[in-house]
Amino acid sequence: MSLASDAWSGETRRMKPDGPTPVSSVVPAATATGDRCELCPLNALGCGDGGRVVRLSGAPRIVRRLLALGIRPSTRCHVLGRTPSGGPLHVRAGSVHLMLRADEAADVLIERDDGTEISHVVSSL
């Protein structure tokens, strides 16, 4: 996973002096230590699964749009519905309901809810 080459990875960490526990500060360390992949693109989630947004990667235009719509680092995301054959996803991000195409959802990297165990370990380090 080439985190270092991504514009998001380093800076979101430095950018969180206070506020809610920044999940993003945890993740690069977690991926460095664990061999399980907690960072998972949103489109890989099944219906009903959820997690917390860690970062967005992709074309700036798409990233801007997703940020504006409310898909932001540390936002909780749930996949509520998917259409077969690679169609759009119905996603709840925070309190907002959104439609995302699969390729846009692939730009949203999240930490799955079932990966919380690992992140607890890492944040206590």
Partner: peptide, 10 residues
């Protein structure tokens, strides 16, 4: 083409 993402309002 721009982003296809959109809000599904309540």
């Amino acid at each position: 083409s721009g982003s296809a993402a959109m809000e599904l309002p309540a």
